[in-house]
Each structure stands twice: as C-alpha cells, then as structure tokens.
Design a binder for these strands. Structure first.
Lengths: 190, 190
DNA sequence: ACCTGAACACCGTTCAAGT
DNA sequence: ACCTGAACACCGTTCAAGT
C-alpha cells in the first residue's frame, strides 16, 4: 500500500542550501537535511543518490539563479555599461548568497562536478558582452579574463583576504574600469 | 618516565598535506594522518589543537612555499617582464600542488583562517611589481586586480571550468598581456 | 612527556521490515 | 511507493591509564 511522499526533491535541495548558507558546506549533513524536511536520513536516498549529488544540485540551483540575475542585468546594449552592470550584479549575488556562491567553482571530488552546461548558461550574458567589447576573435579569451577576475575577487573578498586596509569597493570599481579599457579592440594597434 | 616523541609537528603537517594533495581536503582525517606518521589519532592532539588547526597549518605551509617561489620569480627589474614571470610562476605552483593551492582562499569556518600576514608575505613581490607598473597611488588596487584575476583563473582551471574548448594557455597569456597594458600608468590620460 | 584503548556523539549509507 | 530502526564502518575528540 503506497504511502504519500512526505517531502520533495525541491524541499530537500532548499533545506540543503539553507544549511550551507547558514553554516557552510560541512553543516550540510544528511541527518540535518532530513530533520529540516521532517524525515529520517535514510529516506533522503529516495530523492538523491548520495550527499555528493545533493551538493551538486545545490550548486546547479545557485548557478541557475545567478544566470537569471545576470540575464536581467545586461540590458542597455552599450557593452561598457553592460559589463559594469554584470560585474556589480555578480558581486551583489555573492554578497547575498555567499555560501552558494562559494560553491560555484569550489574544488570538488571529480565524481560530482556540475554539468558544464549549468555554469555556461549562467555566464552566457557575459560572453555576449565581452564579444561586443573585444570583437568575436577574442571573445572567449576576454570573457575568461573578466570571469576569472570577478570570481577571484569575490572568492578573496568572501574569504576575508582583503581585511587589511584599503577600500574594497574602490578596488572592484578600479578593476572593472581597467579591464574594460584593456579589452576594447583598439581600431589600430601596433 | 618520559617517553620519546615518535613523530613531530612537521611530520604531521607533511602527512596532512600529502593526503590533501592525493585525495582532497575530505581525505585529511585525523585517523589517516595518525596512521601515516605511525601513531594513533589521539596522539595528534599533542601537536595540534584540532583538525581545523591542522588544515590551517597546511595552508600556511603552502603560502610560505608560494611566497618563496614568487620571490624567486621576479628578478629582471622590468615590471612588465616580472609581472609575466610572477603570473607564470603562480600557475606552475598551482599545477604542481593543486590541493594545497586550492586551500589558499578556500571558504573556511571563520575560526581557523590563516594569519593574514602569511598570505600577505607571499603576495608581496607582486605588490612591488604592480606598484612599479601602475604607480604608488594605485599599487594596492592594481595588485588586487592582478591577484584576483590570476587566482580566479587558476581556481576555475583546477575546477575544470575550462573543459569546453578553447586554448587555456592562450587565454592565460591573453590575460597577462591585457592586464599589463591596462595597469600601466599612461603619461597623459584625459 | 608522550602514547594508548575505550568511550561518546556524530557521520554516510545499506537494508530488511513496516505501512 | 515511501518511510523507518537497526546496523556497519568511519569520523573528531576527550580522558583515564599506561610507560
């Protein structure tokens, strides 16, 4: 006689994400997730193969949400303004969801990496903006340069690496400005 | 009656680091470290307060080693050449010790962050080079821009984020070149 | 002074048994 | 079809007892 489901995959992922956000990745335990959704730990294995898959699902959830944010941020059609808007949007996302953001390119056991497509989709608006800025031939390299800078900056900021003096906001704005200048395809360059 | 020490803090840290390098942070367990150095797990607490402190010691060990590598890399006195050499040196270090490198700015429970001084020392050669490149007023912002770019690039590379096509070496060289151009203080800028 | 086994609370995961 | 308690192997950590 079937018993009705007492939770759902979406509930489980949301519970896992809130645990990560509150206390970091090591706080995401099967037992705590189970308690949060009102079930015992073994039942989670009806929704998820193992803890690793659950971490990956949280990662993908965050990547999808970041993609939505970025798509909504690049709207002016002016690549310089769009690039600055994208950079500010990803930083706002990282500040709002530091736990989830810190997962995005975290060192992971090879087994449970996210589908590459998940992150690629999130980054797509940035790829289009840098293509407009640097030209199609260098679009990929330019996008990787910008993504690497922004991600490195945010990882370091979240890790507290900038605690010693200086104005972090100013350093971020400086990076945006200089990178934008650097990527613009000059009409004539020796 | 005192018994002679059967291991040492240096041994313990080295064992921990080799476990991380081989199988990632979650493979660093007190029991495995103990087995590696030929002792039982409770004995480790004579050398180290807890697992967190051991992780921090591995991090600091890696930071010190990276500092040595960077100090040896910036030698020409030409800031453009030195910056390129520093960027190549940090990438070589990350490839040689991906586990240790991945720890450097990893999201950590606030309790056991490294002493800020440890990482600052490692980055000092880069700060001096960017100061020469961008001028003293913007040295800090310039250094943060370069460190953020390099670190973000390497984190993403190690996480396998660049698996889909493109020439990763070329993207790194592109980043070095464009960042160098971007940071140079133009004699006259509107 | 260092090392150990035993103990405790907690993990992830499997599985037979319940409904 | 989903949920559960019991079980297993593993964790980090403490502590009294050994030398």
């Amino acid at each position: 006689m079937p018993t009705p489901a007492r939770t759902s995959l979406a509930d489980v992922v949301a519970a896992a994400r809130s645990l990560i956000e509150a206390d970091g990745l090591e706080a995401l335990t099967m037992q705590r997730v189970a308690a949060t959704v009102g079930v015992r730990a073994p039942s989670l294995y009806k929704r998820v193969r193992n803890r690793g898959e659950l971490v990956r699902l949280v990662m993908q959830d965050a990547a999808r949400e970041l993609g939505d944010v970025l798509s909504a941020a690049a709207t002016t059609g002016d690549p310089r303004r769009d690039l600055a808007a994208l950079a500010r949007a990803v930083r706002a996302f990282a500040h709002a969801h530091p736990g989830a953001y810190g997962l995005l390119f975290a060192p992971m056991p090879d087994a449970w990496r996210p589908e590459p497509a998940a992150l690629d989709a999130a980054i797509d608006p940035l790829l289009r903006t840098t293509a407009a800025l640097a030209g199609p031939d260098e679009a990929l390299e330019a996008a990787r340069t910008v993504v690497a800078w922004a991600h490195g900056f945010l990882v370091m900021e979240l890790a507290g690496a900038f605690r010693l003096g200086g104005d972090v906001d100013r350093a971020y704005a400086y990076g945006i400005k200089r990178l934008t200048e650097a990527l613009v395809r000059e009409p004539s360059r020796k």
